[in-house]
Structure formats: structure tokens, C-alpha cells
Design a binder for these strands. Structure first.
Length: 268
DNA sequence: ACACTAACCTGCAAGC
DNA sequence: TGCTTGCAGGTTAGTG
């Protein structure tokens, strides 16, 4: 599921229900996620107040009185605010029950999500090697870092060590917007083209956040609503359909086992 | 250091 | 109807 805009949409949706509220208890129904939720976690979280809810790449970071909680949604996860008494569905992994009488509930059929407590997220293995958020990156940084890299520009910008939070949909959409062929070697793009690309990445992400993210199959925000960015996708999942700019049929290729869409006329 | 792959899971749609 | 296959938003551990 979720790329940066979907995680940000979730963050904005859940924040008001969490910040300043105390965790009454953590209820774990199905501990198996990417990493098993430790049996000690409910005890750790009980009676802690959530001080802030931040996002880094695709991780939600709940700042607690003592330490931080890293929440990842994996491929199929969604976090919703529910009544704790509402009957859980299949694949509802945990509830964080709050003093307000509401609960934060993770639904994640594919179990690629994660819930991890850490004293310091900045030094945590999952966080410390992440590249800059797209808003904080510069074209000079990308251009410099790409020097000598033969890998495709698409793989380069979806590498979280290069840029945080750019997944398959938005990489492909941004490359279309910037007129760059996804297979072009990253080291063979000018600084000017990196400027256009970074601008496109930021614009695509911002526009998607405004629309509540992209719902392909099952993403919903904290209040259960889907995102509407899918309706304005330029190339993603549009193989064979006419390019919105030049009418040429959109093509699909597979790069490192990921579907990659582009317009053969508009992108070079 | 880099670049690619296989793997972790379930669900759903398409094809036979 | 039912079986099989392929594919899906992410990330990592392992290989060469």
C-alpha cells in the first residue's frame, strides 16, 4: 500500500486522537508482523502518554514519555481510529487503546508492517541510513550521489538511502512529469534534469497528500476513507492506455521485479 | 561498495 | 465451479 502520501495522510488523521492522550493498554491479537511484536510491549506502553506523532520516510513515529514507537504499514497496512469494542476483522493485529475511549487499530493482511519500540529512533537501524525527505533534498545532492552509478534512475530514486519515502507509484509518476525514461542510468543525467526531477517528485507527493493519497486496492485513512489520487495518475497502472499528453500508448516494463510505466514518446 | 535476487505474506483477478 | 498462475503500495538479508 502505502507510500509517503498515504503514511502522511494517516499521520494527519490519527494525530488529533493520539497527541496528549494516555495509552491505557496495547491489545495484540496477531503478533506476527515483519517482526513479531514482543510479548513485553504491552507492559512497556501502558500508562504512557503520546507526546507527538511524526513521520520519517514511511515510518510513523509516536513519541512517548519514555522512548518512541515505530509503526510501519508495509504493503497492505492501514491504521484506523475505532471504538475498542468494535469487533475485530481478520488481520486486525493490534489495538492501542487510549484514555479517550478510542483505539488505534492496525489492519495488515500481508503482515509486512511493523511495531517496534526504540529509545532513540535516530540511531535505530531502520532509520539511521535513510536519505533525506524529498523536501529537504537538493538536486546537487542527487546529481553528486548518482555520479558513477549505472543503475536506472528509477531504482536510484526508490532506494531509501538516496531519498526517503519514494515508492513505486510516485517514482514512476514523477519520472513521467520530468520527462525522464525510467531506465536511464542515474549517473548520466544532468544537474538540470535532477532539478526537474526533484521538483516533480515533490509536486507529485504534495498533490497526492492533498487528495488523501492513492487507494489502489485497500488503503484507507484513519477515518476509513480511501484516497483519490488514483484518478489522476498519469502512467501508473495505465499500460496500453493513451498518454494524457500525446496519446501514445503507455508502456510497462519490469525493473527489479517492479512494474514500471512510462510514455515512450514523452520520456527519454 | 555496489547491484541484483529472493524472501517475507495474503488476497484477488484472470485464465484454463 | 474450481484449480493454477501471476501480481500487488515495502524492505531486508543474502549473494556474487
Amino acid at each position: 500500500m502505502p507510500e509517503l502520501p498515504e503514511v502522511e495522510t494517516t499521520r494527519r488523521g490519527i494525530s488529533p486522537y493520539l497527541i496528549g492522550h494516555r495509552i491505557e493498554r496495547l491489545v495484540v491479537r496477531e503478533p506476527r508482523l515483519r517482526w513479531r511484536i514482543p510479548a513485553s510491549l504491552p507492559r512497556k506502553l501502558a500508562r504512557q502518554t503520546v507526546r507527538n506523532v511524526q513521520r520519517r520516510a514511511k515510518y510513523l513515529i509516536l513519541e512517548l514519555d519514555d522512548g518512541h514507537l515505530l509503526c510501519h504499514l508495509g504493503m497492505s497496512g492501514s491504521l484506523r481510529i475505532v471504538e475498542p469494542a468494535s469487533p475485530p476483522r481478520k488481520h486486525d493485529h493490534y489495538d492501542i487503546v487510549l484514555d479517550s475511549g478510542k483505539a488505534l487499530r492496525l489492519h495488515d493482511p500481508r503482515r509486512f508492517g511493523a511495531l517496534i519500540w526504540t529509545a532513540n529512533p535516530n540511531t535505530h537501524a531502520l532509520i539511521k541510513n535513510l536519505g533525506p525527505e524529498p523536501w529537504d533534498a537538493t538536486a546537487e545532492y542527487l546529481h553528486q550521489r548518482a555520479r558513477g552509478h549505472k543503475q536506472s534512475i528509477k531504482n536510484f530514486i526508490t532506494d531509501s538511502r538516496t531519498l526517503a519515502g519514494v515508492g513505486n507509484i510516485y517514482a514512476v509518476e514523477a519520472l513521467f512529469k520530468a520527462g525522464i525514461h525510467p531506465k536511464r542510468p542515474a549517473g548520466r543525467l544532468s544537474l538540470e534534469r535532477y532539478q526537474a526531477l526533484l521538483k516533480a517528485v515533490v509536486k507529485v507527493l504534495e498533490r497526492s497528500i492533498k487528495m488523501g493519497g492513492t487507494t489502489l486496492r485497500d488503503f484507507v485513512s484513519a477515518d476509513g476513507e480511501p484516497g483519490y489520487f488514483r484518478q489522476v495518475l498519469s502512467v501508473y497502472e495505465r499500460e496500453g492506455e493513451p498518454c494524457r499528453r500525446c496519446q501514445t500508448p503507455i508502456r510497462r516494463v519490469v525493473l527489479t521485479a517492479r512494474s514500471t510505466y512510462f510514455c515512450p514518446h514523452c520520456q527519454h
